[in-house]
């Protein structure tokens, strides 16, 4: 189980700082019988990336983040993987070299899944990543995160640059290949696309968790995820008509 307890993050800036996260409490994973896919939603600047980077210990923060009761350190960091829109691969290396690197450093690397996903996305194995298109690079970034052998896979806007056919097929493949021990935390703006395959939605607004709901609970209430988000964020339905009326 991944636990965030009163996690806060303040960025100091020359002309006044930014409270990026404010007392975030969240629990992910923890003995589920099936893989958990958690959607992390929020407007730009809500704190989604900061939340993920705090979990990964990329910067200091206040509060506690525990993995099965222990602080995250080099001993257990291999249980977390990360796919970022900034890309974390080595541009000069081929996918084959990346596989070798991952196998050397992450003993639980899933080689079969790697080969399956490379074939699914039709990505060349022996071409350096710097020669891939942006969409292909995004796909490879996701593949590495899924194949590291981690229990918690954090994905920060992973589908940018992918065409819709690739995305839809990918969601189906993802549901099929994940194991019960795996938890995905996925931040995306493509709410309508992911609402049918995520099991839970966490909503961030100005660094705070303002919503945390199961997909099943929404289904029982007869509310779609988009409507739930609009309701929670206080979306003004008349903003478009007002803007057009003022014209």
């Amino acid at each position: 189980m991944l636990e965030l307890q009163n996690v806060s993050k303040y960025y100091v800036q020359p002309l006044g700082g930014v409270q990026a996260l404010s007392n975030v409490n969240l629990t992910l994973g923890g003995g589920a019988e099936q893989p958990e896919i958690v959607g992390l939603f929020g407007e730009n600047g809500a704190g989604k990336t900061t939340l993920m980077k705090s979990i990964l210990q990329y910067h200091p923060y206040q509060g506690k983040i525990l993995l099965d009761g222990e602080k995250i350190s080099r001993k257990n960091i291999h249980r977390l993987s990360f796919a970022t829109s900034e890309h974390s691969f080595f541009p000069g290396l081929t996918p084959v070299s990346h596989r070798e690197f991952y196998e050397m450093h992450f003993p639980a690397f899933r080689r079969k899944r790697f080969e399956t996903l490379m074939e699914f996305f039709e990505l060349p194995m022996h071409k350096a990543l710097k020669h891939y298109s942006t969409g292909q690079q995004n796909q490879f970034e996701v593949i590495l995160a899924l194949c590291q052998g981690a229990d918690y896979i954090l994905m920060d806007e992973p589908f940018a640059g992918n065409d819709i056919f690739n995305r839809e097929d990918f969601y189906k493949v993802l549901l099929g290949i994940l194991e019960p021990s795996e938890t995905i935390l996925l931040s995306t703006h493509l709410i309508e696309e992911v609402e049918n395959f995520i099991g839970r939605a966490v909503l961030l607004h100005e660094g705070k968790v303002i919503g945390d709901v199961d997909s099943l609970a929404l289904e029982e209430k007869g509310i779609g995820l988009v409507d739930y988000l609009k309701e929670t964020y206080g979306y003004r339905r008349d903003r478009v008509s007002k803007a057009l009326a003022a014209k």
Partner: peptide, 18 residues
């Protein structure tokens, strides 16, 4: 930090001396 942020991967490696 060139061409990508492979530092994110490096900082997640179990080998603290990498």
């Amino acid at each position: 930090y060139q061409g990508s942020r492979s530092i994110y991967l490096i900082r997640r490696l179990p080998d603290r001396w990498y």
